[in-house]
């Protein structure tokens, strides 16, 4: 009898604890879900805050960073002497490797007409180091910008680059408007 009684008490404790847990879990769920009911959020970096420290290239959990340079053509001057494509103080303005600023040669340059050139980012080669971004920002219009490519980003709980970003340029943004590049047509 004593044994059985003890058993029941235990059951009771268990049941009430379970109920307590269930209530708190439900509470958390309700509290948070009401706040989270909006599709999805993703990590993105704000080019206006970016200082091109180079950590996007090295800190992403992916082997080659999900941060890529994007080219906002609307802002581009199509210059022959491109601060983002050519190393400073190159003698010749051509496609020779020694003239290219990009460490992985991820920018292609195409002639349109004198004196205009189109610059395109070869996404597979881009490591997101931001070197060209800095060059373009210093001398050009800033049409080259770093952005997280959402095809590649696995959207970690905590973005590893955001953790080390010195300029707090990373934030969660709504997935429906997942890019923060400048010169966007609003």
């Amino acid at each position: 009898m004593a044994e059985k009684k003890q058993y029941n008490r235990r059951d009771f404790i268990n049941n009430s604890l379970r109920a307590g847990i269930a209530v708190s879990l439900a509470g958390i769920t309700v509290a948070l879900t009401t706040r989270a009911l909006s599709g999805k959020s993703v990590w993105q970096l704000n080019p206006a805050k970016c200082v091109q420290c180079g950590r996007c290239a090295t800190s992403c959990i992916l082997e080659t960073s999900a941060v890529k340079c994007v080219h906002v053509y609307d802002m581009c001057g199509y210059c022959d002497l491109c601060g983002g494509y050519l190393r400073p103080d190159t003698k010749e303005l051509n496609t020779a490797a020694e003239n290219q600023l990009c460490p992985t040669s991820a920018i292609s340059r195409k002639y349109i007409e004198e004196p205009f050139f189109e610059y395109q980012i070869i996404e597979e080669l881009c490591i997101g180091c931001g070197k060209c971004v800095k060059g373009c920002g210093a001398f050009g219009n800033g049409s080259l910008q770093l952005q997280i490519n959402h095809k590649l980003c696995v959207n970690c709980n905590q973005c590893a680059i955001a953790r080390v970003c010195p300029s707090e340029a990373f934030s969660l943004v709504s997935a429906s408007d997942a890019y923060l590049y400048q010169g966007k047509k609003m």
Partner: peptide, 15 residues
Amino acid sequence: PADSTNATEYNLEKL
């Protein structure tokens, strides 16, 4: 937190 050197530094200071 992270390496402070930037392997792909674009430095205009010299210029």
